[in-house]
Write a protein that binds this DNA or RNA. Structure first.
Lengths: 109, 109
DNA sequence: TCCTTAGTTGCAAATGTCTTCAAGTCGCCG
DNA sequence: CGGCGACTTGAAGACATTTGCAACTAAGGA
């Protein structure tokens, strides 16, 4: 008996539901990136970033490879990139709409 | 200064990151639905469902309207439906791929 | 070999989220 | 009005996630 689909979905979304993880995934969209660079872009303690990277790794969304003294992360597959692009597009629209909605709500008091 | 986009995204995904909320949203995709019916499809305590519905409401993803003695929920906008469709499609693929991957991993031990 | 830099891991404290139970509101029927 | 069914709300306890410090490993130098 497999994990119900709705539960797999929920887990997946939960994995995306953290600011640091989202930022990492978006940074990786531009190509494989060493930890050092992620660390420079996201202000956070190294150990904390490592924990989040660990989660993404265990979820199979990213891969890590050691290159000399640095570790380089990359998106695990094209699917992941596709999903992120779609999510990004739709969400950007959605949030803009919500912004408009909010503005209307404020205007009508 | 607005909420950073990546944080809004994270919040949004977190909202989708719960099995009950996902199921509710998917049930609502087929049209406005009374609580009674959600309750029949999702096995859960009424008060627990209410809590989750409350979150979806506060997040602006669904709307509630009272009709006589029952309350009917609906998706808040076409955007939400779009996003769910896209998420559903991409995720279904992704999960199938992961399944394949898993099978391969198991086969190669 | 010893030191330093780059990351990761183990934990415990702080925070956040879920579930549940008890109590409350809103319609409706008798 | 009084009571019942359909939901919602508040609050507490259980449970999960996040953070930060300290200890640890791996790779290069000096």
């Amino acid at each position: 008996m497999p994990v119900p689909l709705y539960q797999a979905k929920a887990e997946f979304f939960r994995m995306l539901g953290h600011p640091v993880r989202i930022r990492v995934l978006e940074l990786l969209q531009t190509g494989p990136t060493p930890v050092r660079e992620l660390l420079a872009d996201i202000e956070i303690e190294p150990s904390s970033l490592s924990q989040q990277l660990g989660q993404l790794r265990r979820a199979g969304l990213v891969t890590a490879t050691r290159e000399g003294s640095t570790v380089v992360y990359a998106l695990a597959g094209a699917d992941v990139a596709d999903l992120l692009r779609a999510a990004r597009r739709i969400l950007t629209e959605l949030i803009q709409d919500q912004g408009v909605l909010l503005a209307e709500l404020r205007a009508s008091d």
